[in-house]
């Protein structure tokens, strides 16, 4: 139960931050990616704000102990090397992000907005995730 409440709070803060920072608006995201047009640097400030909170708490508190506040082990990725799937996946993701201006967090946060374009994006995104996961498990 404790895990469910803290995850709910985390998701809520994350979604509120996405909306307040305007990163739920694909026009703003595309404006950041359009460096040869009327460049909109807002997304860089959003990233800076997120890193300003996460990095020091992670580096000074979590990293030395590897455990949560409740002294339970953190589940961190074990893979360290840059491999072909990482590169291929990042390229495919970048293509989709550049075409739409939407990545998974803002896409999901937009679900209550009632936009058909968002429903279509989320539907094919979930199909892609499920398909890729099943393929990887084979």
């Amino acid at each position: 139960m404790r895990f469910i409440l803290t995850a709910l709070l985390a998701g809520f803060l994350f979604g509120a931050g996405l909306t307040i920072s305007m990163m739920t608006d694909p026009a703003r995201v595309l404006g950041f990616l359009d460096i040869f047009g009327a460049w909109d640097p807002t997304l860089a400030f959003v990233m800076a704000g997120a890193l300003a909170i996460y990095m020091p708490i992670y580096q000074f508190y979590i990293k030395p102990r590897g455990r949560t506040i409740f002294n339970e082990p953190c589940q961190l990725p074990e893979k360290k090397q840059v491999d072909q799937p990482l590169i291929t996946g990042a390229i495919l993701f970048g293509l989709g992000w550049g075409l739409s201006g939407i990545c998974p967090g803002p896409g999901l946060a937009n679900l209550s907005g009632g936009q058909p374009a968002i429903y279509v994006f989320i539907l094919t995104m979930l199909l892609g995730m499920i398909g890729a996961t099943m393929y990887q498990k084979k």
Binding site: L99, S100, P104, V120, F121, L123, G128, Q136
Partner: peptide, 13 residues
């Protein structure tokens, strides 16, 4: 775009 994001984020972890 949704399909590319779905597949790409899984392959790219």
């Amino acid at each position: 775009a949704g399909l590319l994001v779905g597949i790409g984020t899984r392959i790219g972890s």
